[in-house]
Design a protein around this nucleic acid. Structure first.
Lengths: 151, 151
DNA sequence: AATGAAAAGAGTGATCT
DNA sequence: AGATCACTCTTTTCATT
């Protein structure tokens, strides 16, 4: 991970679809050098993939919420099972497994309040391992798509 | 937003770097058709960008936390100002503006516990509008990189 | 709106420094 | 490791349906 690798990562986080040539030009190296670096980063698992960022409205997901969830018993099995099921729910964008007051936080995005209500009742309330959950509505989200490398 | 647009979105969420030809082949349309669709989606703001997904370890961010924050007074000005400053902090990946118990949730990723501690003390404790915050450590996160279009 | 063909540009691997 | 070159494939534009 030298300076060149860091720059490649930064540029691909900013725009994953720019050509290898453009990348090379911005870095002041030959395209073949740049290509080999990108391949090495991918092979080493540093670059995990490339994803289009889509407006939630176009996906019919204008209503977002954060749902904190407690489960019992706090066994590895229960946690793993809940984590996997939650991640597989189409309404769920992201699952955080936490230490502290809550056990999980679910980032949920759906069409409207009705669909959110249905999610809470049909997907969460029914589960026997859940001992409680609390919903906060998301007014707005700002994401940093290009996190820098920290010292 | 017909079936073809939805499929383009799905494929570009899965792999933003596949060539336009490959996209066209998978969809069974001509490359030029596909290209025009992608451009229209971009023009309409449906596609907001393309980002490489980078292993947090390679960015020196192996320690993650969710920090819920309360601010006062709850005025538009205070909220907007805090939201912007938080989003600009290099430690912060994401800022959620919430309704309910807490006012904000910050998703923070740093090198280690020392850096997290420093973040809480230097970036948050100092701010006069913050009346309280609570930190939960993140053990694990699962993200759905390809959210589907809901009905 | 979609297609097909042609020009311009990019990806890729061999080879050399 | 990085650069250059040559070959192939892709992107992009535009005339046509």
């Amino acid at each position: 991970m030298d300076e060149l690798d860091s720059e490649i990562i930064r540029l691909l986080q900013t725009d994953a679809r720019q050509s290898n040539r453009e990348l090379a030009r911005k870095l002041g190296v030959a395209p073949s050098t740049c290509l080999e670096r990108v391949r090495a980063l991918t092979r080493r698992g540093v670059i995990r993939g490339y994803h289009a960022d889509i407006d939630p409205a176009a996906l019919n997901r204008q209503t977002q919420a954060l749902v904190s969830v407690q489960v019992r018993p706090l066994s590895r099995e229960v946690i793993t099972r809940f984590e996997r099921s939650a991640a597989a729910m189409p309404e769920v964008l992201s699952v955080f497994v936490l230490a502290g007051g809550d056990d999980f936080l679910l980032h949920v995005a759906v069409r409207d309040m009705d669909q959110l209500h249905a999610f809470l009742l049909d997907r969460l309330s029914q589960r026997r391992e859940i001992t409680g959950f609390k919903t906060s509505m998301v007014f707005q989200q700002m994401r940093n798509a290009v996190p820098s490398r920290l010292d």
